[in-house]
Amino acid sequence: MVVGLGNPGPRYAGNRHNVGAMVVERMAADSGVALRAHKARAAAAEIRLGTLPGELPGPKVVLAVPSTYMNESGGPVSALMKFFKIPAERLVVIHDELDIDFGAVRLKFGGGEGGHNGLRSISKSIGTKDYLRVRLGIGRPPGRMDVSDFVLKDFSATERRELDFLIPSGAEAVELLVHRGLDDAQNLVHAR
C-alpha cells in the first residue's frame, strides 16, 4: 500500500506538507484511475504498478491519501491496512522532509519520525516504526521562520516549476521500491 501524506481541502492543496499526496494523485492519474472515498476516511484506488518483463502487468498496489488532517493520518492508514490485509513491511509512506534539500528524494525503512506529525500518527496507530518511507526534500525554512508556518505555505514560484521533476521522481522511486526492493531502489535513487 502506498500512502501519500497531506492535509485535506483546497486551502492546503499547494502546501509543501502536501507533496506526498501530490505524488499519489499523480500515480493514480498516470494509471488512469480516480482515488475514491473509502470508509476508512481516505481516498483510495487499486492499481497495477508499471509493467513486468514480457509486458505483464505489475503488482497490485493500493494507492491512498488520508482525508484527515496530517496529525490524524494513522487512523485511516491503520484501517486501510486492515481492510486490504497489508502488513507493515509492505506499507510505503510518501512524505515531505525538511532535512533533505529541496527536490531530492530519499528512501528508508523504519527509524524516527523527525518531528513529522503524520509519521508519528502512523507509527502510533500501527504499532511500529518499521515501514518504508519515500522522503521528498522540501528544505529548511528560511531565516527564523517557524517550521509549521513553512510546511503549511504553498511552494514558491521557483519551487512549483521544480515540482514537475520532484513529483515524477517520487512516483518513480515508489515503483523502483516495489519492483526491486529497498537496497536496489536506494542505490538507483540516491545516486541521482
Rank of each mutant, 00 (worst) to 15 (best):
115 G>F: 03
141 P>I: 08
90 R>C: 01
168 P>V: 14
147 V>T: 15
166 L>R: 12
3 V>G: 02
2 V>R: 02
162 E>A: 13
69 Y>N: 00
119 L>P: 00
5 L>C: 13
140 R>M: 04
41 R>K: 08
148 S>Y: 05
179 H>T: 04
60 K>L: 14
18 N>K: 13
173 A>Y: 04
164 D>T: 14
106 R>I: 01
33 V>K: 11
22 M>R: 14
161 R>S: 14
145 M>N: 09
19 V>G: 05
72 E>F: 12
67 S>M: 10
33 V>P: 07
36 R>G: 03
39 K>N: 11
64 A>P: 07
11 R>I: 10
166 L>C: 15
85 K>N: 09
111 G>N: 01
2 V>Q: 01
61 V>N: 02
47 I>C: 07
12 Y>W: 08
181 G>M: 12
38 H>C: 14
172 E>V: 09
21 A>F: 10
17 H>C: 14
158 T>G: 15
87 P>S: 14
176 L>Y: 06
174 V>T: 08
154 D>G: 11
163 L>M: 11
166 L>V: 15
181 G>H: 06
190 H>A: 03
171 A>S: 04
136 L>V: 14
185 A>V: 07
61 V>F: 07
118 G>Q: 07
58 G>E: 05
156 S>N: 09
165 F>E: 03
93 V>N: 09
111 G>S: 01
171 A>R: 02
113 E>M: 00
163 L>Q: 02
31 S>E: 04
111 G>F: 00
107 L>E: 06
113 E>F: 02
30 D>C: 07
44 A>M: 04
126 I>P: 01
86 I>F: 09
146 D>Q: 15
121 S>Q: 08
111 G>C: 01
36 R>M: 06
24 V>R: 09
81 M>P: 08
122 I>V: 15
81 M>D: 07
144 R>I: 13
61 V>K: 00
69 Y>L: 08
41 R>T: 10
7 N>K: 03
64 A>H: 11
162 E>P: 00
120 R>K: 15
102 F>T: 03
145 M>Y: 05
147 V>C: 07
167 I>N: 06
79 A>I: 04
46 E>H: 01
155 F>A: 13
60 K>H: 10
165 F>N: 11
116 H>Y: 13
157 A>L: 12
62 V>D: 12
106 R>F: 00
90 R>V: 02
105 V>I: 12
12 Y>D: 06
116 H>I: 11
99 D>A: 08
179 H>F: 01
141 P>C: 06
190 H>P: 01
86 I>Q: 04
135 R>H: 00
163 L>K: 02
137 G>M: 03
6 G>S: 05
122 I>L: 09
